[in-house]
């Protein structure tokens, strides 16, 4: 199973790519090619992120988090530690919450990814979890918030939001240095029923 060397067409997202990704992408594409020529350490990936298909040839080292933030300008997903210790980079992969910093983009090839940008409806209506975080002041600085909200949706969908105690345990992978835990827990209590029955960003 050698690394595929088939020529790669495209290099921009099929839809929805930001202008930035286009500009910076060209330079990165050249580097990727340089590295590829030297050692074959690149990989083709195709992901559906918030309903949009992206196809890229990437340096194999590219984490899903790097891809989102540095290539696709989806900066709602935050970097807090880069080592799976804080949960700020939480996204849903095929509906399951994961740390995008410890996931290579290559590992997610073919996966469906939901980031905070894809949680509200296409019309911009807040997801019940987002609305509940707002109402219960489940954040202060807001930096861990995208990860908290995505994680909270994952927590509910996993069936781990049956009590306050269970929510606290199953939300402990998301650090909040501002200490907004009380509001976070209250928000999840309020939004859990609506979250069970709701779709995320227009998808289940």
């Amino acid at each position: 199973m050698a690394v595929t060397r088939r020529s790669f067409l495209g290099g921009t997202a099929t839809a929805g790519a930001s202008a930035l990704a286009g500009v910076a992408g060209a330079a990165r594409q050249a580097i990727a090619q340089e590295v590829d020529d030297a050692g074959g350490e690149s990989v083709d990936v195709s992901l559906v992120i918030n309903g949009v298909t992206y196809e890229r040839r990437l340096d194999t080292r590219t984490s899903l988090l790097d891809l989102l933030r540095e290539e696709l300008d989806l900066t709602g997903t935050k970097v807090g530690c880069n080592h799976g210790q804080c949960g700020a980079c939480t996204v849903l992969m095929n509906g399951t919450r994961i740390n995008s910093c410890l996931t290579l983009a290559a590992m997610a090839d073919g996966a469906r990814i939901t980031t905070i940008e894809g949680v509200a409806s296409a019309e911009g209506e807040l997801h019940p979890m987002q609305a509940a975080f707002l109402e219960h002041d489940g954040f202060q600085c807001g930096y861990c918030t995208p990860g908290q909200i995505v994680s909270a949706i994952g927590c509910v969908k996993e069936g781990h939001a049956t009590s306050e105690a269970e929510i606290r345990e199953y939300m402990s992978g998301n650090l909040c240095r501002c200490g907004a835990y009380k509001g976070i827990t209250e928000a999840i209590m309020e939004a859990r029923e609506a979250t069970h029955s709701s779709e995320v960003g227009g998808q289940s």
Partner: peptide, 12 residues
Amino acid sequence: LWKAASPQLRNV
């Protein structure tokens, strides 16, 4: 298992 790591880590 559930007392180890975090839900996100345990999911993968």
